[in-house]
């Protein structure tokens, strides 16, 4: 089950308004390679996992991604909460604003709402881990593209943290993959129930 701790994993304290940047960063909230997709992917894959270590890794990384979701939501909120209405159109923020105001809504930078189609839970322990390795790389690339879009250190610091977390997660999924391979290749005993004769 989940419990909420009233603090951030990494602090988000932004001084300068920048709705144009918020429009881009929202993609890590509800976009194809964002934190919501990541957490639902791993938390959904847990059930089909076969080794205790891979269950733990899926559970714990899935949980950490929720903390990252909160960070991204905080960044977007703080970047847009006090914007001057006269600047909305110039910032390219108008199409988001008319549907969501300065609220936070899970969608991509292009405005596509979040969908479960952004992730897979295949029920095959090897397939799921390969999916996760790819997912962490996609997230890392996205953070790199986002980091190129700003010089604001208040924004860059949390983005840099989040990017490095993707690299660490990739490593852990890689280790889980080895554990699952060993398990699947090992000698295991199955008991098959014989059907009764009619």
């Amino acid at each position: 089950m989940w419990i909420y701790e009233k603090k951030q994993e990494f602090p988000v304290k932004i001084k300068q308004q920048n709705p144009a940047l918020a429009k881009l960063i929202i993609t890590q909230y509800g976009g194809p390679d964002g934190e919501l997709g990541a957490s639902l992917r791993y938390l959904s894959q847990r059930y089909a996992a076969v080794t205790p270590q891979s269950k733990a890794i899926l559970n714990d990384i899935g949980t950490e991604e929720l903390a990252h979701l909160e960070m991204i939501g905080s960044i977007c909120h703080q970047l847009s909460k006090d914007i001057d209405p006269a600047e909305i159109k110039a910032a390219g923020f108008d199409s988001y604003y008319v549907d969501h105001g300065t609220g936070v809504y899970p969608a991509s930078a292009a405005g596509v709402p979040f969908t479960a189609a952004y992730f897979q839970s295949k029920g095959d322990p090897l397939t799921d881990l390969y999916e996760n390795l790819a997912a962490e790389q996609k997230a890392r690339s996205t953070y790199e593209y986002l980091m190129r879009m700003t010089d604001d250190p208040d924004v860059l610091e949390p983005l840099r943290f989040l990017r490095e977390r993707e690299i660490v997660h990739f490593q852990r999924f890689g280790e889980a993959l080895e554990g699952v391979r060993e398990y699947l290749d090992s000698k295991r005993q199955f008991t098959v129930k014989m059907p009764k004769n009619e």
Binding site: R160, F161, R163, E164, R165, I167, V168
Partner: peptide
Amino acid sequence: LLAGTVFPELVDIY
């Protein structure tokens, strides 16, 4: 905390 991990071998500076 600033780097995003406690393991120096996993740090990849961008």
